[in-house]
Design a binder for these strands. Sequence first.
DNA 1: CTGTTAGCGCGTTCAT
DNA 2: ATGAACGCGCTAACAG
Lengths: 320, 320
Amino acid sequence: MNDSSLVKPHTRQRVLEAVKSLGYIPNKTAQVFKTGRSRILGLVISTQHISELVYNAGFQARFKALTVKTHNEGYNILIISSTDANCDSYFEVIKNQVADGFIILSPSANESLTSLLEEAGIPYVFNMKYSTNPEDIYYVSSDDIEGGYMAAKYLLDLNHTDIRFIVGVVKGSLMPFNVDRLNGFKRALNEYSIEFKEEMIVGIPGQMEESYNLIHQLFQSHWPTALMISNETTTVAALNYFHDHGIRVPQDVSLIGFGPSEFFRNLRPNLTNVSYDITWSSDKLVDLLLQRIEGKMVTPEWPKKPELIIRDSTMRNFRP
Amino acid sequence: MNDSSLVKPHTRQRVLEAVKSLGYIPNKTAQVFKTGRSRILGLVISTQHISELVYNAGFQARFKALTVKTHNEGYNILIISSTDANCDSYFEVIKNQVADGFIILSPSANESLTSLLEEAGIPYVFNMKYSTNPEDIYYVSSDDIEGGYMAAKYLLDLNHTDIRFIVGVVKGSLMPFNVDRLNGFKRALNEYSIEFKEEMIVGIPGQMEESYNLIHQLFQSHWPTALMISNETTTVAALNYFHDHGIRVPQDVSLIGFGPSEFFRNLRPNLTNVSYDITWSSDKLVDLLLQRIEGKMVTPEWPKKPELIIRDSTMRNFRP
DNA sequence: CTGTTAGCGCGTTCAT
DNA sequence: ATGAACGCGCTAACAG
């Protein structure tokens, strides 16, 4: 049944016939037990993350890319949702799953989780760098510093100086990739000798309603000439707010989004955006995990630079 | 370790200490093998379906609802993607997975798949009715006839008679739920003594680009006063087309969507839509499957009626 | 309450 | 080229 080359075609034929007539189905569980390989990869996500799925185009794109790649490699994905954002609880959940390895989409991974996984000998990868320890190499990051830089530089070139950078905030602190984007933003300001002010950064929770309200508050108190928005849901909320209040994009305010280009192309107006190659990074992530699991060779690569897609939501600033 | 009530607290304490000091982790695979229960539910999806994930709000909502419900019941979801649309291949994929049961999101299930699963004793449920055999009871449907009816009736009450019903077409044929919606549509026409014409039905593939182009063709040849659109992607494509060509909603054309209310609330204009309770039906679906797996009692219920959410994309027709 | 043991269904090895 | 036997790590049943 397992295509062994030691079996005569005739014998195989007879076996297969018996299988068919008896309706025999091999016990997959016993196979997994015996071989120690389930060909399942665990995808660890917080339940909160799943709840924000609608309109979170970045997650959708990553989910799709991971599923397709995993399928092509002969694996399946097990969705492992953890209610608790506490990272130690992640380990409890992870070790209780049947999987050959784990992809951890964690906004808040930490070093104790890493060491627990390492000690237990469980193969894992993270979708972003979360620690400063140079020995932590099991992640595929994107070049977020460059992303923040290129968006800001483009706006500065268009004569915008009154910019607001809207970033998602989880439990009062910035996600690591947002810290990077922010640093890129600051670097661009610095190059153009524009002083960075704290008020340029606007922290916003990722949900639609709250985003809408906070955009409202922002524009009540001060109307910037340009906006960079670090997550898709808030970008949609902002567009809706502008639509509802007759604020024209880009005439009254320029707007740059971050995320999958396809998503922004289907908005109106078409949005200028910083686009990351999520398919690429997802593929690399799975390759990295399979390397740990099956010793598959992987050529290490630098994070791919994001791309600035210029469309219809940005224009030159003429305000003083 | 398994919280047996037969063990003295003191002994348990000692065991737990040993576990900790040795770093012992139970072999989940062996547990699954021995007990025959993995607490995994397989979610069977075609790869094409996954590819259309972005903007497919109905799928996102169902995925989220299923994941949350499953998690609450102490199970995890295994994503099983099948490349082939051929249903016999589904069985091959399904029987090769470690799972206690399967949720099949198939647009094209058939009766041979059912009988294969039945014979093999594999617990399964479908997310929609796909056959006319009254013995096939393992599905949770929604009341799509009513959905089509209430949308059409609402438009007819608003004096619209020149209506187009845009429905997704897969491989040249309508999905079963679209057949139902269409029948509801016809029933409403009949009640108002409006003659049904074939041209009222416009078949469209679900993707964004094609939808956009077909909407364009439709409006080039004939401009109806109202549109009912059976899938979300096409709805977004239509809104984008109207935006790009200065067609006002609802002044120039009324529009009714089908799908999760939340999705349509975040569009501009806010869309009148027929809303199904996907959380409810997903919960019921998981309950039904768990009933088959663990003999859990389930009270059978009628499909829940959809709700017509009236918002800003529909108005009275004044054209003759 | 605690310690011992059979056996789940495979893949693998070894003898024929 | 084929058949027989072993054992993976755990749970459950049973003896003590």
